[in-house]
Design a protein around this nucleic acid. Structure first.
Lengths: 312, 312
DNA sequence: TATATTTACATAAGCACTTATATAATTACT
DNA sequence: AGTAATTATATAAGTGCTTATGTAAATATA
């Protein structure tokens, strides 16, 4: 027995509200499952701010079609979450200029595949012909209630978040530089020679016969690694870097496995330089079959105090 | 610029909520316009209680598919409005038996044409094929925002509430009795002879060549009037009564106009007995052309102190 | 038969909105 | 130029839901 459903067109308002609640709840669960700290109610406002670049309370009020206090309240929530920043306008002190914070921009990049997954799932269950609005609502409600929608959302998000290892591509040139300098800055410091090599991958890595790979989520590079030719079939595994907000997704290991497969296929012998400070990295190297060998006196990296090679 | 709309499937939750709010607001306006003191949010619960006859908190919880506290809160609102009554169950003191109050039943009868109008309007704008849920929502939102929905709802409600004057019909026999005794009880008292005549309209009015008319809203009689044959072409206008909760809808005047038209067509001369206490009634009689004439000594009604006839 | 568990309903607090109103800063008007 | 009107945003209080928890009555269990 379902009164609201059986009333059909007569309780359209309650019906829409109930469906909205169910929809929001499902989306919230999907966010949680993928460790996205976000609230579905904030989405339209956040998306709008991200799209406009810089906006104001009044502008959001205009495009969100809610009440002006609702906009103020939403802005406050986004501020509290640290996803946006606001400042009083210089020319008009009544206005507040709202922009995404660094955290907000980072979040936006991170959440994009999740949103793509959600959109695809909603479309799957709602983009089909029906003879009335109620019929559409009935259909959608069934998949929301049965858990089928949630299952599909999660599947689609997983697909969208899937990491693919790709060859070097020009679109990722800047990422190659950024990903590497980021961790260098964290653990050591970026030398001029690093900058030179990282900004000219063609000259220093690809043209001499080496390879660069990226771990990409959609069109976003989350990690990289390079194989630099040392001699005829000896290659140095280097320039491995993973984006900080992609930690825990085993991207380093996927890149490593790809290099190993690639090396085996082409009959390459691999070696690498590292530093004992980087315990996690070295742990992974060992796990994948690298063993420590003596560092030669003329080691090219000042920061390296350990050399390893792949035991075949 | 409409962010939520342009996001399409991606902001389905917010979209449904916004539409629900718009829908509820429109319905609320329609209620107000027709002087129905009701809240669209209460509708599913109220309808359920009316349909089940007697129910409990738990039963409503089951069929409304909301949270149990929401049911309690809704029940409290309905109690506050006096539309329902609740009592602790005799066999299980935890339970609360909920039934419509007299006011609730009366309201239910009164609101029925309004609901029919609302349902027809929603169906008009949502019962058509579309290729996706979003398309349906877009279409419905347009008519909600433009005011077209509201206009149609009001029109349809007006049609559903329209009063039609009908000949005597057996289905309204009890209404003929009830409508008349109700006002007699209010102003005077019901005599045995009243009961006799009102319960046997065939014997006392129709068979002697008289007529009975009803003012009906759908299948509900809201008012009645009779023309009793006094002599060959002289008829007494009598038994005029209008339901209390239909006051202000000019039902008395419609019945009166019908009698005048009918009398003219059949070349009847009309007269009536009344009481000067009934100021409003006498005002209307005068307005429609009745003028006071002397009451004969053998006046058949004890309660009448005034006699009027139609100046042709 | 006494205690634990379950059931039916109520209460409290929170959330995302709403309307009504306040508070500044800016613009219009005479 | 000084006051009034308008604009941009904030605050307060209310609404209809939610989840979490409380309370009393009925039922199960030992």
């Amino acid at each position: 027995m379902d009164t609201i459903k059986s009333l059909g067109e007569l309780s359209m308002g309650s019906r829409l509200k109930r469906l909205s609640d169910m929809c929001m709840k499902n989306i919230q669960i999907a966010y949680n499952k993928h460790h996205i700290d976000f609230d579905p109610y904030l989405f339209p406002a956040f998306h709008n701010i991200a799209n406009l670049g810089s906006t104001t309370n009044a502008e959001l009020f205009e495009s969100l079609k809610t009440s002006q206090p609702a906009v103020t309240q939403t802005i406050n929530k986004l501020l509290k979450k640290g996803l946006i920043e606001s400042a009083t306008d210089v020319t008009d002190k009544r206005k507040k200029t709202i922009v995404l914070s660094e955290k907000g921009k980072e979040f936006h990049r991170k959440a994009r595949p999740v949103w793509r997954g959600m959109e695809r799932a909603v479309k799957k269950f709602t983009q089909h012909p029906a003879n009335s609005l109620i019929e559409h609502l009935n259909n959608f409600e069934v998949v929301l209630q049965s858990g089928e929608f949630l299952k599909t959302v999660n599947e689609y998000i997983d697909v969208e978040m899937q990491i693919k290892i790709t060859e070097y591509q020009e679109a990722f040139k800047q990422d190659f530089y950024d990903l590497n300098t980021e961790w260098l800055e964290t653990f050591f410091y970026v030398e001029d020679f690093d900058r030179e090599v990282l900004s000219k991958p063609h000259k220093y890595i690809l043209e001499p016969g080496g390879h660069i790979f990226f771990a990409a989520e959609g069109n976003r590079a989350l990690g990289t690694v390079a194989l630099m030719k040392a001699s005829e079939n000896k290659y140095e595994l280097t320039k491995m870097a993973v984006h900080t907000d992609a930690r825990g997704r085993k991207i380093g290991q996927q890149l490593m496995q790809h290099c190993l497969d690639f090396a085996k296929e082409h009959n390459y012998e691999l070696f690498l330089y590292s530093n004992t400070l980087l315990e996690n990295a070295i742990h992974i190297y060992r796990k994948y079959g690298f063993v420590e060998i003596p560092v030669e006196p003329d080691c090219p990296y000042v920061r390296s105090n350990i050399k390893m090679e792949l035991r075949r």
